[in-house]
């Protein structure tokens, strides 16, 4: 039984992690690399006219454009960095393998309690997982671009972990509860971390343009949803197939 739990989760997690990594490299990484030019000072948000940054010219500027903000808005961020992007693929697979192991544990627990889990329901399991580990924490701490102002890392990690745990329990109670005796506490648990509030910095002094940060957050969440739906469908398919 243990080997079936492990194999379903690890195969599904590796596949979902690979999907997430490819989407990240295609859609999220270019925004991140662009932001790092502001974080490192190669580009400056609201550069004064005539305030030229010649060291950025070879990285980003199209010389046909007028120098300044217009040229910096869409630098070419194409191209793979083999070691950096290879590590991203590896860690994406590790993260989603971890999520898959937690997901298959929850699915087995639900089955033990008499809730049949079919391959189709993987869609719901995946969406619920996405809500618990990405959407709910993002409501308080949006996916951060490098260089953004942020509160103390340990405080944010504690808030993140608490939010994920409370949201997961809340979703379980909503899904499997049969009355308001389960649903009412679920709403309280889901709302609690947001009523307490996520740790935020005292001053907003990040050097990156808000346009990039907004695009980054939207895309990170979109990629997360796709990867989690794939993870849910694959995990339940492999798990229920092994049972037959």
């Amino acid at each position: 039984m243990l080997s079936r739990l492990l194999s379903s989760a690890l195969i599904a997690g590796a596949a979902a992690g690979l999907i997430a990594a490819l989407l990240q490299l295609g859609f999220v990484q270019p925004v991140l690399l662009h932001a790092e030019l502001y974080e490192g000072g190669e580009l400056t948000h609201f550069a004064a006219p005539g305030d030229h940054h010649h060291d950025a010219a070879d990285i980003a500027h199209d010389h046909d454009h007028a120098e300044g903000a217009a040229a910096a808005a869409h630098p070419d961020m194409g191209g793979l960095d083999l070691s950096r992007d290879g590590l991203s693929v590896l860690f994406s697979i590790l993260v989603y393998a971890g999520y898959a192991l937690l997901l298959v544990a929850a699915i087995a627990l639900a089955e033990n309690r008499g809730h049949a889990v079919t391959a189709r329901q993987g869609l719901l399991w995946g969406v619920a997982g996405f809500v618990a580990v990405q959407l709910a924490p993002a409501f308080g701490l949006a996916p951060e671009l490098p260089g953004m102002a942020a509160a103390d890392i340990t405080q944010r990690e504690i808030w993140w972990l608490a939010t994920v745990a409370l949201s997961a329990v809340a979703l379980w109670l909503i899904a499997f509860g049969k009355s308001w005796a389960a649903w009412a506490p679920a709403i309280v648990l889901a709302a609690l971390p947001h009523l307490v509030g996520a740790p935020h910095p005292a001053e907003l002094t990040g050097p990156t343009p808000p346009e990039l940060a907004a695009q980054f957050a939207g895309r990170a969440l979109g990629v997360g949803l796709v990867a989690w739906v794939a993870l849910g469908l694959l995990t339940t398919t492999l798990w229920s197939r092994g049972r037959a």
Partner: peptide, 28 residues
């Protein structure tokens, strides 16, 4: 696995997992 890849504050792990941590919404 999730803690090691996503949250552990070791310098080496942080650098290796940096882009994935940002893109997956972990605090970084």
């Amino acid at each position: 696995l999730v803690f090691t890849a996503g949250l552990a504050q070791s310098e080496t792990l942080h650098d290796a997992a940096h882009d994935v941590r940002h893109a997956t919404g972990f605090p970084c």
